[in-house]
Each structure stands twice: as structure tokens, then as C-alpha cells.
């Protein structure tokens, strides 16, 4: 118990205090500093899980209540664009992981390259998302601003085995699209924040900030990026793939 709880070691403090310019004054050594910031990042991701958790709860309840409306709404999304975006994000997680590896190896130019690739893929994702949102607007599927349930009361030519929805259930597709926009919108907002942070990281990585042995920032940003990616891995099947087996 005792030895585990000891977080700082005064002897090491003496040894390391002098040389590392990255050591902040209130930590005893770099190891403690690194552990602390990584732990803080994981904790922040936990708060993010709770943040999205509210939306997933709402989704769970309404999907059970209005399953036919959710099926009909889901069929209006482009599975091709969604799958493409999923692939883009998975690739971007790969490039991000390679970036962290490059930082570990202290390779400056490869680090900048991998970060730029991640930035590019992030922008591709947001671009495709914008196309999808535009398409929703054209089809009058934006609840509150531009919505019409008319399409759902008729037979869908792509899914001839689905019966058209009765009017009251057709209205409930608004809940589906509300959640679609809230969930993908919150996800996109996280992507925008991620892309903005990446720009800063690229500039600082070019200056060599993360390739001299102090790369906690890149590592923690990597955790954030993977988290946002994982949220999408959940969103894609939940929103795009409801009853697509026909």
C-alpha cells in the first residue's frame, strides 16, 4: 500500500530537476508529469462518454418506441457516403497512430507528414458530412427548419417490401432526424475542434516541439482523435444500418 501510494520521489527530483526544460515546477519528475497528463486525458474522455451517453440514451428509447420510423429514416441516408466516411476515419486513426510512433522515434518530418495526412482525412470526413447534410436539406429532412413527412407515407421504390408509414408514425421520423443531426452534429463539432487542434500541432511539430523526447501532447491528442473515431464507429451502424438486409 505504502510503496504504491508514493507518487513522488525526492531523490529523483534532485537528479532530474536541473536538465529537463519540459518539467513543470510542480512535478517531481518527468515520469510523474507524463502519467499525470495522460491520466487527465483519459478522465476527460470519460466525461465525453457521458456527454454522448445522454444522446445514446435518447436514441435507445426512441428507437424502441418508433422502430418503423427509425427504419424509414435510416433508409434515407446514403449508405455509400456513410461507409466511405467510416473508412476515412479508420484510416485517419491509422495515420494518427503512425504520427505518435514518429514522435516517439523523434522523426520530425515523418511526424509532420502523418499529422498532415490525418488533417487531410479529417477535412475529407467533414466535407462528405457537409454533402450529406446538404442532401438532407434538399429532401426536406431537417426537423424544425425544413421538414416534410410526406415522403414517408408513400412506398419507397428502393425498399419495395417496406410498407408506407401511417401518418402519425411518419411524423415520428422527425425524432429520428433530430437525433441524427444532434448526434452527427456533436460528432462533427468534435471533428472541427480536432482539426483545429491538428493545425496547431502541425505548426509546432514543424518547429520540432514534439521530437525532442517530450511528446505527451501528441499522444494525448491521439487519444482524443481515436475517441472521436470510435464514437463514429458506433454512430454509423446505429444511424445508417437499421434493417438494411433487404
Amino acid at each position: 500500500m505504502d510503496s504504491q501510494a508514493i507518487a513522488t520521489h525526492p531523490e529523483q527530483e534532485q537528479a532530474e530537476h536541473e536538465h529537463s526544460p519540459y518539467l513543470r515546477h510542480h512535478f517531481a519528475n518527468l515520469e510523474q508529469q507524463k502519467e499525470t497528463s495522460t491520466f487527465g486525458m483519459w478522465l476527460f474522455l470519460l466525461t465525453e462518454i457521458m456527454f454522448f451517453g445522454g444522446l445514446f440514451t435518447a436514441y435507445l428509447i426512441y428507437r424502441n418506441w418508433y422502430y418503423p420510423a427509425f427504419v424509414a429514416g435510416s433508409h434515407q441516408l446514403s449508405i455509400g457516403l456513410g461507409a466511405f466516411n467510416t473508412a476515412v476515419l479508420i484510416c485517419s486513426s491509422f495515420t494518427m497512430a503512425m504520427g505518435v510512433h514518429a514522435a516517439e522515434m523523434r522523426w520530425r518530418k515523418p511526424l509532420v507528414g502523418w499529422l498532415l495526412a490525418t488533417l487531410f482525412l479529417g477535412c475529407v470526413f467533414l466535407g462528405v458530412k457537409a454533402i450529406e447534410y446538404h442532401e438532407k436539406w434538399e429532401k426536406h429532412h431537417v426537423p424544425g427548419l425544413n421538414f416534410s413527412a410526406e415522403g414517408f407515407t408513400k412506398l419507397d421504390p428502393h425498399y419495395p417490401e417496406d410498407k408506407p408509414l401511417p401518418l402519425d408514425m411518419a411524423e415520428k421520423t422527425q425524432v429520428y432526424f433530430s437525433l441524427y443531426f444532434a448526434m452527427t452534429g456533436m460528432h462533427a463539432l468534435h471533428m472541427v475542434i480536432g482539426v483545429s487542434l491538428l493545425i496547431i500541432l502541425v505548426v509546432r511539430a514543424w518547429g520540432g516541439a514534439y521530437t525532442q523526447g517530450h511528446m505527451t501532447t501528441v499522444e494525448n491528442f491521439g487519444l482524443y482523435w481515436h475517441f472521436v473515431d470510435i464514437v463514429w464507429i458506433f454512430l454509423f451502424p446505429l444511424l445508417y444500418l437499421i434493417s438494411r438486409h433487404q
Partner: peptide, 26 residues
């Protein structure tokens, strides 16, 4: 964070009229 997302939904409902808490929309 749960309060945060709840308030976001309230604000969105008021601002643009999404229907997560609106009985008229389900």
C-alpha cells in the same frame, strides 16, 4: 456532461425546433 448535452438539446429545440423533447414531433 449529461446536463451539458441536455441543455444543448433544449437550446437546439428552442433555436431551430428539433424534436427530442417535443411531444408534437414524437
Amino acid at each position: 456532461p449529461v446536463l451539458a448535452i441536455t441543455l444543448v438539446l433544449v437550446v437546439l429545440e428552442r433555436l431551430i425546433g428539433i424534436g427530442v423533447f417535443d411531444p408534437a414531433k414524437g
